Computed example of a mutant assay.
Amino acid sequence: MNALLIDDSRLARTELRHLLRAFSEVTVVGEARHAAEARQQIAALRPDVLFLDIHMPGETGFELLASLEGPAPRVIFTTAYDQYALQAFEVNALDYLLKPVSETRLAAALAKIRPLAAAAGAPAAEPEPALPTLAAHDQVFVKDGERCWFVRLADIRLFEISGSATRVYFEQHRPLIPRSLQQLEARLDPKVFFRANRQQIINLHWVAGIAPWFSNTLKISLREGPDVEVSRSQSGLFRELLSL
Rank of each mutant, 00 (worst) to 15 (best):
M1S: 14
L20A: 06
R21P: 08
A35Y: 03
A35I: 12
R39A: 09
Q40R: 12
I42F: 03
P47F: 09
F51D: 14
M56H: 14
M56T: 08
L64D: 03
L65V: 05
E69M: 03
A72F: 10
A72P: 15
V75Y: 00
F77W: 11
A80L: 08
Q83D: 13
A85F: 00
A85P: 04
L86N: 01
L86V: 13
N92M: 07
L94R: 03
Y96F: 07
L97N: 04
A108Y: 03
A108H: 13
A109P: 03
K112Y: 01
P115A: 14
A117N: 09
A118P: 00
A119I: 00
A124D: 02
E126T: 13
V142W: 00
G145I: 09
G145N: 07
E146R: 15
R147T: 06
V151D: 04
L153M: 08
F159T: 01
E160I: 00
I161V: 14
Y169D: 05
H173R: 12
P178Y: 11
R187W: 00
D189V: 01
P190I: 04
P190Y: 02
V207H: 03
A208P: 04
K219D: 06
P226L: 14
S231V: 02
S233K: 09
S235L: 06
L241C: 10
L241P: 03
